[in-house]
């Protein structure tokens, strides 16, 4: 990163190692030597294609090696191919297909409701003082109550069927979406407000062309948290109160000591989470093309 201008070295009391033409380390350069620093690049370099897969693939490799060499006890963690084999078996002759479909449907419903509610509440609270007064405090209280703690109450209210599961997922999803979108809407730069006044924008134009586009970065932060949250709550819900779905499948496997089925369920959850997060990222990159940051 640093190199010495050799001409200057040869002219001063250079240590014997510093033969002209040989790179001299900065620490060994005598005082008075001209040391030229190259600028260190602080931003990470270009992103490699598919680099986000590298970590998971490495993990898979370590897991496979552990299984092949016998370091990992198959009763603790079955080999990857065992899990794949179990998956294929359950897909063809078991309930895996319906379990996946059920889980996906629950997550999708909860997410869609949570997204809608979060966006609508944030818009009302972020764009009108009345809305803010009525909604924001209420949501802040709701936020501080652990949502999963509401499960017993919701079961009593809504029964143990699908409704309560979807409701819990929706709550977990709407909170981060609301919080981030609301703070982005409320925190719109006053300089842009002033500009809009000078340009005589109507209230609708101001909202449509300044406030909403300006709050999209915040919205995407909330959206990603919401997507993750929907999977997270799904896992919990399906393991405690379900008769089908991936979590139920894993719960049953626990009773019969089928480690491979548990690992299979975890893998599928992981893949769902990874894929949905990637979709949101892709969408974010499209929509926020005007942003030039480290992640672009």
């Amino acid at each position: 990163m640093t190199d010495t201008v050799t001409g200057a070295v040869s002219g001063t009391l250079a240590p014997p190692a510093a033969v002209p033409g040989t790179p001299v380390r900065r620490s060994s350069a005598p005082p008075g030597t001209v040391v030229r620093h190259r600028t260190r690049r602080l931003a990470p370099g270009r992103r490699l294609p598919y680099s986000r897969l590298a970590g998971p693939l490495l993990l898979l490799l370590v897991w496979s090696l552990g299984s092949v060499t016998g370091v990992v006890d198959p009763r603790v963690l079955p080999a990857p191919w065992t899990v794949v084999h179990t998956g294929a078996h359950l897909w063809v002759s078991g309930t895996l297909r319906t379990d996946i479909a059920t889980s996906l449907w629950r997550a999708a419903q909860g997410f869609a409701i949570g997204l809608t509610v979060g966006v609508v509440l944030a818009l009302v609270a972020g764009l009108s003082r009345t809305g803010e007064a009525l909604i924001d405090g209420t949501v802040q209280i709701n936020r501080s109550v652990p949502t999963l703690g509401l499960i017993p109450l919701f079961i009593l209210w809504l029964g143990i069927g699908e409704t309560f599961k979807v409701a819990i997922i929706a709550i977990v999803v709407y909170i981060p979406i609301y919080l981030n979108l609301y703070s982005a809407l409320a925190g719109i730069d006053t300089r842009y407000v002033q500009l809009s006044e000078v340009l005589r924008l109507s209230r609708w134009q101001f909202i449509r062309q300044v406030v909403i586009p300006g709050s999209l970065p915040g919205f995407f932060v909330g959206l990603r948290l919401g997507v993750t949250g929907s999977w997270l709550s799904l896992v919990v819900l399906e393991q405690i109160n379900a008769t089908n779905g991936l979590g139920y499948m894993m719960f049953q496997a626990q009773n019969y000591g089928q480690t491979d089925v548990i690992v299979l369920g975890l893998l599928i959850y992981g893949i769902f989470g990874f894929v949905s997060d990637s979709v949101v990222r892709l969408l974010e990159r499209r929509v926020l093309a005007w942003r030039h940051s480290l992640s672009s």
């Binding site: 300089r191 842009y192 002033q194 500009l195 000078v198 340009l199 134009q205 062309q209 586009p213 300006g214």
Partner: peptide, 25 residues
């Protein structure tokens, strides 16, 4: 008809240059 130019350009970062120039017109 009054126009104001500020110390910062105050262009909206999410609108392309032309869209900024015609904003509100």
């Amino acid at each position: 008809r009054v126009s104001v130019v500020f110390q910062d350009s105050r262009l909206l970062p999410w609108r392309r240059v032309l869209d900024n120039v015609v904003l509100g017109a």
